[in-house]
């Protein structure tokens, strides 16, 4: 187990920060207030674009000097020409999209490579919660009641691996996180968050 530093309190940001090479053209889907993009601009000199649904978050992103725009991820993606970006990032939002396969394929259309980070529904705590409570799992990672969860599509590490294989995506890097630690053994059980760097 290796300790991972965090960026704005998020270890997935720290990993993505490491994965993005300097000078790239980067699109962040669901960029929030553009903390990550702002950091990438400062430290990796990337050309940054962000999409975010919330107007108040977009305001903060633009105030940070990042070219962000208010919009729906799927719609924004569909506007871009093929290969517009070196890297398209989707962090902790895949499970909230209405059509995740459509989003993933469009990410690989507009971007040469993609980074996806998502909470792992296969984590042992989720399994235990469901097994013993007999109710919709509620954990630190999935803290919502069934009726107010933003998550539409739950997936696990193994789900993503299988999908990637089926779609013929090439996984360049896979990093599994439990809190601020990187885990390698039995990631489908031990990973809280999975980060994938992949391409077509």
């Amino acid at each position: 187990m290796a300790f991972v530093h965090s960026l704005f309190g998020r270890s997935d940001y720290a990993i993505i920060g490491e994965l993005v090479e300097p000078g790239l053209k980067v699109l962040d889907l669901g960029c929030g207030e553009a903390e990550l993009l702002g950091w990438l601009v400062e430290n990796k000199n990337v050309q940054a674009r962000g999409v975010e649904l919330s107007a108040s978050k977009v305001q903060k992103a633009i105030a940070r000097g990042v070219s962000a725009y208010q919009g729906d991820i799927e719609e924004a993606l569909s506007d871009y020409p093929d290969g517009a970006f070196d890297m398209v990032i989707l962090s902790q939002t895949l499970q909230e999209t209405r059509r995740p396969m459509h989003v993933l394929n469009d990410m690989l259309r507009v971007g040469k490579r993609a980074i996806v980070a998502f909470p792992n529904f296969g984590h042992w705590r989720v399994r235990v919660s469901h097994l013993f409570s007999g109710r919709a799992p509620k954990t630190d990672l999935f803290p919502y009641d069934w009726y107010d969860s933003p998550n539409l599509h739950y997936l696990t590490v193994d789900d993503f691996e299988e999908t990637a294989k089926k779609e013929g995506w090439i996984i360049e890097r896979r990093i599994f996180l439990a809190g601020a630690k990187e885990v390698t053994a039995f990631p489908n059980l031990t990973a809280e968050v999975a980060v994938y760097l992949f391409r077509k």
Partner: peptide, 10 residues
């Protein structure tokens, strides 16, 4: 956006 130009919008 369709020409990948630099635009911010809110």
């Amino acid at each position: 956006r369709s020409r990948n130009r630099d635009v911010a919008f809110v």
